[in-house]
Simulated assay, not measured.
Amino acid sequence: MTALPPTAAGKLLAVLGAFDAGHGRLRLSELATRSGLTLTTTHRIVAELTAWGALARRGDDSYVVGRRLWNLGLLAPVQTDLRAVAAPFLHDLHAATKATVHLAVLDGHEALYVDRVSGRRSLPVVSEVGVRLPLHTTGVGKVLLAHAGPDVVERCFAGLAARTEWSVTDAGVLAAQLAAVRRQGWALTDQEMTAGTSSVAVPLRDGTGDVVAAVGIVVPPFELGSPAQQSMVTALRVTAAGIERSLPPVP
């Protein structure tokens, strides 16, 4: 975690920064350890944040991000502008495929899910709006990683942790996959984030050609190179093209 100055605001941000995709529920002692603050200081800040609604206390004395902070985050431009433009196209894609549809952006070295339309209830989908998931184990993540800067790539490759037995943790294999993503214009995963699910994703570009997001769908495992895969890629490309045409011009 990035060190923050020992100011009141810095300490508050250190506590909030203790939460991430792998640490969504933390006890007071864990918050103190991850924030680098004393237990006394952490206790005071957590009490203030809880009273304001930025954190919520659970029955087991752990803390999670509160509804008020969540609502505030929804005001970020990446949430309001991109989601508003993409929403009708995502719903059309869901109607056509009956699959869970995702819209994600790069946030640090993770994929931040900014919208989701739920599909088949029987599939074990772990994503939710606002959740951050690894780049190397998700379809949208591989698209974003394939077009990310060298600092993001280096950090991601330094920590290729397995989420399932099918996760790609070999740097050479992943590098080859990312090269293929750039060449073919789409990415896929095969049970790499969650057993029993595959995903396909395509990039979403702004008016300058830069990749600003990724659109993906989660489906049951399928045969690679099958007509089903080809139809999913086609549907995603149509969706991405519609969103791109509707995005406001880059200033």
Rank of each mutant, 00 (worst) to 15 (best):
D92T: 12
W52F: 10
F89A: 13
G216F: 04
L178A: 01
H91N: 00
A201M: 09
R245Y: 03
F222V: 04
Q177H: 13
T41Y: 02
V238F: 03
T41L: 13
S199Y: 00
A51D: 11
L12P: 00
K11I: 00
C156R: 08
A86G: 08
V211H: 11
I243K: 05
A84D: 13
A241L: 08
R245D: 11
A180M: 01
D61K: 11
D20N: 15
L74R: 14
A18R: 12
L103F: 08
L39E: 14
R34P: 10
A213Q: 09
I45W: 12
P5K: 10
V168H: 02
V85W: 14
L49I: 01
G216I: 01
E165D: 12
F222K: 00
G242H: 01
E244Y: 05
G172T: 11
S226Q: 02
V65A: 04
Q229V: 07
T100V: 02
I217L: 15
D170F: 04
S198C: 14
V129T: 12
R67S: 11
G216A: 08
V250L: 11
W52L: 12
H109F: 10
L103N: 06
G209S: 06
G216E: 03
I243A: 06
A21C: 03
G17K: 05
S127K: 00
L188S: 13
R34V: 06
L93Q: 01
S199P: 01
P249H: 10
V65R: 09
G36D: 12
V168A: 02
L16A: 03
T197V: 13
E244P: 05
V212F: 12
H91I: 00
A214E: 04
G10L: 07
V78R: 15
E165Q: 06
Y63E: 05
T239P: 04
K142W: 06
V212A: 07
Q184E: 15
H102I: 01
A32R: 06
A176F: 02
L31A: 09
D206T: 10
